[in-house]
Design a protein around this nucleic acid. Sequence first.
DNA 1: TGCATTACTACATTGACTGTAGCAATATAG
DNA 2: CTATATTGCTACAGTCAATGTAGTAATGCA
Lengths: 196, 196
Amino acid sequence: MVEGRRERKKQLTRQALVDAAVRLFTERGFERTTVADIAEAADVSTRTFFLHFATKEDVLLADVTERVSGGAAAVLRDAASPAEALAAAADVMITDAWRGDLRTGAAGLRARLVVDNPAVRARLLQVGFAAQEGIAAALVAAFPDQLDEVDAAALVGALMGAVASAAVAALRRGDPPDAVRDAMRRAAALALAPGR
Amino acid sequence: MVEGRRERKKQLTRQALVDAAVRLFTERGFERTTVADIAEAADVSTRTFFLHFATKEDVLLADVTERVSGGAAAVLRDAASPAEALAAAADVMITDAWRGDLRTGAAGLRARLVVDNPAVRARLLQVGFAAQEGIAAALVAAFPDQLDEVDAAALVGALMGAVASAAVAALRRGDPPDAVRDAMRRAAALALAPGR
DNA sequence: TGCATTACTACATTGACTGTAGCAATATAG
DNA sequence: CTATATTGCTACAGTCAATGTAGTAATGCA
């Protein structure tokens, strides 16, 4: 919190928007809540919403992006091999996936919406893919003599694809959070060193 | 072509929309072309566009979906093991990915847009994920005693994620079609039985 | 010939998102 | 402390994708 008053107020507005969105999405559902509703509930103009979030979906997903790509990139820096780097990155991502927003209840809401709202799922896939590209680039930078861009993309894509699909499948089945996390870990292991 | 006149005219309208879309997207770009423009060029009402395609992006992607999921599901029926089934499915998908629409030039346009238009890429990810879920379900149905839903999802997700990521990476690098297809095949092999 | 279906149309509406110009609080330099 | 630059926010107007509805006319079918 070394920032000035201006930045502090900005974060306050942002948080008010997230809180309002989580509350309204929970009460009425995602589709039946308009961005204007959220802005109104947060007592800011509709335009302000889009100064903080690029899309309606991002109010739920923005922090995920930051943590996932940030954490994964950090891990890549001190790994001995591509395989080790990816395993570590997977671990960080899976562990982080649930942290944060437990306070606001955003994590559960997000999980629910990703499973049964196409727009939210689509946006998550989109930001997930972007994160993949970043991780793949970092991987190439870290091991330039062992991987080219396409191989790195394939490796990261396999890992993320397996984890994401397993997570959605487990959630769709109604697994509790712990079981979902286990499923994600198993999927990561399977993608990195398949048993069959 | 056993269909009646009504169905034939319908397909004519659909094709006119696709042709107009491909032409306009090529001339002006995706964003600078409105659905109204496409409908106007195809000489139908704007509403008619959405009776044929759910979204603006789908005018480019609709047939991909049909062929990919249809072809893959067919392969799953007569395979001896999950691994074999997935390998065959990957082969069908990769081979099919380029067929069709060579006439209209839609394939090249699509590849270009998937790489550098976020909306098109997002929509392709979305329909790809839906196709994955269908394939995973078929896999579980075919080998119910060897896989549960989550394992199947992880396997299919790893395969599709690797192939998709490698394809985009190769396209982004500027690889010619043949090289892209090779990259996809290599990614599939790597996802199914990684060398490292 | 009558009836049902359906592809298409015109029209109205919603809602996400963008561009622009201005205001007022905050930061910064002299 | 004052002048100036920055910037978070607002109001307002506009674009455009997407949906709902009711009607028409061609087609399919009895």
